[in-house]
Design a protein around this nucleic acid. Sequence first.
RNA 1: GGCGGCAUGGCCAAGUGGUAAGGCAGAGGAUUGCAAAUCCUUUACCCCCAGUUCGAAUCUGGGUGCCGCCUCCA
Length: 489
Amino acid sequence: MSLRLTNTLTRRTEPFVPLVPGKVSIYCCGVTVYDLCHLGHARSYIVWDVLRRHLLWRGYAVTFVQNFTDIDDKILRRAAEEGSSMEAVSERNIADYFTDMDALNILRADRMPRATLCLDGIRALIGELEAKGAAYSADGDVYFAVMAKADYGKLSGRDLDQQQEGASGRLADEEEARKHHPFDFALWKAAKPGEPSFPSPWGPGRPGWHIECSAMVRQELGDTIDIHLGGADLIFPHHENEIAQSEVASGQPLAHFWLHNGMVNVGGEKMSKSLGNFTTIRALLDSGVSPMTLRLFVLQAHYRKPLDFTAEALEAAASGWKGLNAALDLVARAVDPAASTASASAEVEGALDGFRERFGAALDDDLNTSAALAVLFELARPLRSLAHRLQRGDGTAADEAREPELLARGALLQELAAVLGLIAEALPTGAPAAGGEADVAELEAAIAARRQAKAERDFATADRIREDLRARGIELIDRPGGVTDWIRA
RNA sequence: GGCGGCAUGGCCAAGUGGUAAGGCAGAGGAUUGCAAAUCCUUUACCCCCAGUUCGAAUCUGGGUGCCGCCUCCA
């Protein structure tokens, strides 16, 4: 079975066939860098990261391009608010983007163009559209004429005549007056006094939002690409307009596949800046949510469906990840990948191939990460069990007999988990985290006192010490052999 | 008004014609001085109505409810 993907353009799930055998070109709409990324961004980039990893796993050579929009009204507003510059705001947020996405183990794109560095291509494209009669200028602005594209609306399934103009309540009157058609959109915006601007044949100004993607796709990947990615909220108008611009200019289809991820909801409503119901990735990570928990949370749902963000769901993901991580951690520490594959029996290999098959088939089926995760959990269960028994030091002869199977199973789990970008995280240990030497010494003394009390069967004292430490945020864990570990809860 | 999507156990969520994956939580058991951790077992006729079919959560029609987009948006 081969990869099938749901194409927004056709509204169907269709077999994926690349333009060039063995190679896949992908463009993913990136962020406007005026603020930290929130969970909605995390979902989008985690999901597309899995698409990319899966294609790589299947042996494709993938070229993945993602942009940064570093020219935008909101960036300018932010710069004005904080008394800095557009460049300063952009640079800071790009750095933060990498910090957050790296933490989530999202592979960096092969190339990440920025609007400010693609102005030549943007101006050239606008010039071409003007020459073809698909663009017109008005008071220093340049607009794309949607009537120039006969099939305008094909991606979002819209009939312009039946749209309710201004239904979103966000149209500016002055701008509307300059347009020939209500759905015409800006390719170039004249700079207002005092605003940063770039020179152009139409006067100083800056590019419209949609044109940068068209220019970047062409510059980095050519006229037609395999897959174009983005959030479902970009279908209209952003992607519709990209198609209009690019296809009028080149006469070729812009992308064969258009994939869109569903929104993250909070209380049944879309997470967004305007509603003020967003949670930044940074805030989640700072609050102690592990990056892998976030990945698991996102991947447990199908990418096209809405995903409700609740504290309960996040806790469930954290618990789930803990179990998976226990198995992965065991593998990372105990399995030597080089030695693990040779010894398993043919029967075991056959069984494991079954898991591999199911996992691959799940992802091939329009990225069914939920089903793929189920395979991971099934693979992990006996490994968790072994990890626990080894930890207690009561591994049995039967375990040893099964060792080749478990080693092979562990190696497979590691391989498949990596396709979902899930990698072992260090488990909490008794190692001192924050806190000075004196604190640790005092803690050790308390633990020693408790050990003494336990030896004398004075459990009241032992429990009081446990409670005292718990009140200070220290959790004691008794291990076999009289050893007591502690963690900061 | 137009376009699109969703409705599966306490929660999250797969499954799109042959008698309901997985995760979380809960319950029972094992282990444990206590606690934590761990292991085992266990919990569903799939929003409503009608229809097609030998057979439907899965197809068709009609309802009901919720959500997204209609020039900020991942």
